[in-house]
Simulated scan of single mutants.
Amino acid sequence: MNFEHLIQINDPLNPLVPPMTRDQLWEGLVLRAEQPQLFVLGLDSCAILSRTENTLERELHYGHATVRDRVTLTPGRSVRYDILATAAYVGGSLTMTIEAPDEDQLFLRFEYRTTLPTADTEDDRQTSEIVKSAYRESDIDTVRLIRQFVLGPGEPDALQH
């Protein structure tokens, strides 16, 4: 299953949404990669097993379950998470890409590529829509948390999507 969507970060037409700079958004994406337990519900801990200038090998602990992934950082532009499929977990990737069509607008594109099969039956389609909705809600929450961490607690908790 492949899925992508866009979240608007800056909206020059809505003064209630405090603007973020590209650098602030990037800082938030790096924070999510390095301290995912601040962003991911149910994640107990994260151990960074190895680090290079632009990659992290991580071990994520959800209760008794452990997931390993690789995070690739393209500075100022994107973060890609690659999870290997196991008997217990769907493999795939998530790429978060910063898009700025002009100096006033800023977006974050989320692209999911999973090993879930393409929906052939009505039950499969419903399951696929539930998964997509969960991804979307998680991503909206990620942007909300980045706003809180980057802009501070005094800023309004506004979000455009």
Rank of each mutant, 00 (worst) to 15 (best):
D82P: 00
E137S: 08
H61T: 15
A100T: 09
V143A: 08
S50K: 02
G63H: 05
V40M: 04
V79R: 03
A100I: 04
G154K: 12
L94H: 10
S133D: 11
R136T: 10
A158V: 11
L16T: 06
T118P: 06
T121K: 04
S93E: 09
M20V: 04
T121W: 10
P12L: 08
N10P: 02
R125N: 07
T52W: 02
E4V: 05
A87R: 11
M1H: 11
L29E: 04
P153I: 15
G154C: 08
S50R: 03
N10W: 02
P156C: 02
R80G: 00
S128H: 14
R51G: 00
T121F: 02
L43E: 03
L13W: 14
I98T: 11
L94T: 12
I146E: 10
L151N: 09
L145E: 11
I48L: 00
V143G: 07
A100C: 10
F107K: 06
L151T: 08
P75E: 07
S50W: 00
Q105E: 10
N14T: 09
E57N: 09
V71D: 11
A119T: 07
T21I: 01
A134E: 12
Q37I: 02
A158E: 13
Q24S: 14
P153N: 14
F149Q: 14
D104F: 14
E27S: 14
G152R: 13
Y62N: 02
V79I: 03
L60N: 12
P36D: 07
L29Q: 08
P19K: 14
D120N: 13
W26V: 01
P12W: 13
G152L: 08
T127E: 10
V90C: 09
P75A: 00
Q148S: 10
V150P: 07
F149E: 13
T74C: 06
F39V: 02
T118I: 09
